[in-house]
């Protein structure tokens, strides 16, 4: 087990060519820590073990215990300490082993971290990142999409990328941002797709959605794993002659209203797809935005395909029932296209 020399480079910087989202996130952390010694990582099992999903594998060997801080199982302490470190000008990246556990430090995130700048002018340049989302039969406590608690919290930024290159570019932007950023990593996407990284030190701006597919008949707004479902659905719909425009939000807070409104004004129909539960999901917020900003352009009701309003169930047939899928999106889009 013992290494004579740090094996970091092989783990941290995969050979050139397409890489997975896990590798892309690790690469972002590696590059940022190398660029700026103020960037430190903190979390449970992120050092020797390299994190539950091996996102931080190799960082300890490269940067040492001072910069890769392994903690007790204490989420409130992790976030509190990261916040305290940021007050001295550090830029901590805190890992939630599973993003579900962010509920354990909800108070620290929403009352202290999020409010400090507004209340007493203390910027909190920290990132909270962790694996989220279902589809891997993780059960009710390892599959959640708790993003909307934080989208509802002024002072935070919330990012939820769908591709390796976006994950890398957005994580870099998040680390360089002066505000607390929640960075959701969909664990279904961790190793299921590969992508070539753009060359050099590139970043993706926070707060900018991207149009993944142009279309004229309706707009499908989505993010994270559901952005891929939306793309699949768009391909199927095209065979029926329905051209869907697919928007990948990438950032949920602040929301890129312009991109959504521009698209809806063009297609006149909106379908929102998200893996989060239905009630209080971002689809409701986007619907309200469209009613406020493009009501007269709408030719049909705002439709949504979401997870059920239940905890994430464990058994495969139950979870499949719970989650949106391509068929559900196609059916909803087909219905919407009839208007």
């Amino acid at each position: 087990m013992s290494h004579t020399a740090p094996s970091a480079s092989s783990k941290v910087v995969p050979a050139s060519g397409p890489i997975t989202m896990v590798d892309a996130i690790r690469q972002a952390m590696f590059e940022e820590m190398e660029r700026d010694p103020a960037v430190v990582a903190i979390g449970e099992d992120i050092g020797v073990y390299g994190g539950a999903f091996k996102v931080t594998d190799g960082l300890l060997a490269k940067f040492g215990r001072e910069r890769v801080i392994e903690t007790p199982i204490a989420e409130t302490a992790i976030i509190g300490a990261a916040c305290g470190m940021s007050f001295l000008g550090l830029r901590p990246v805190a890992e939630m082993q599973f993003i579900d556990f962010i509920a354990c430090c909800f108070n620290q995130v929403t009352n202290f971290v999020a409010k400090s700048h507004y209340l007493w002018g203390a910027p909190v340049p920290m990132v909270i990142r962790g694996p989220s989302g279902g589809g891997v039969h993780g059960g009710p406590f390892h599959s959640a999409n708790p993003e909307m608690y934080f989208v509802h919290t002024p002072g935070l930024k919330v990012i939820y990328p769908s591709t390796p290159s976006d994950a890398k570019g957005l994580l870099k932007s998040a680390i360089r941002d002066n505000n607390p950023v929640l960075f959701f990593e969909h664990k279904y996407l961790y190793r299921r797709l590969k992508e070539e990284m753009p060359p050099g030190d590139y970043t993706v701006p926070i707060g900018k959605a991207i149009v993944r597919r142009a279309g004229r008949d309706l707009t499908i707004v989505s993010y994270a794993a559901m952005a891929h479902i939306a793309m699949e659905a768009a391909v199927l719909l095209a065979k029926e002659g329905i051209e869907a425009e697919v928007i990948d939000l990438r950032t949920l807070l602040p929301l890129d209203k312009d991109t959504i409104l521009t698209s809806v004004k063009k297609t006149n129909k909106l379908l929102v797809v998200h893996e989060d539960t239905r009630t209080g999901g971002i689809a409701g917020e986007i619907a309200a935005l469209v009613f406020e900003g493009a009501f007269e352009d709408l030719d049909g009701p705002v439709a949504r395909v979401t997870a059920l309003d239940t905890p994430v169930p464990y058994a495969p047939p139950l979870e499949e029932r719970f989650l949106p899928n391509t068929e559900k999106v196609v059916a909803a889009a087909r219905e919407l296209a009839k208007y």
Partner: peptide, 16 residues
């Protein structure tokens, strides 16, 4: 909440 926060302050102070 200030206890972990000040722990972080101390950790950062040492680091710096």
């Amino acid at each position: 909440d200030l206890i972990p926060v000040m722990t972080g302050v101390a950790m950062a102070g040492r680091y710096l």
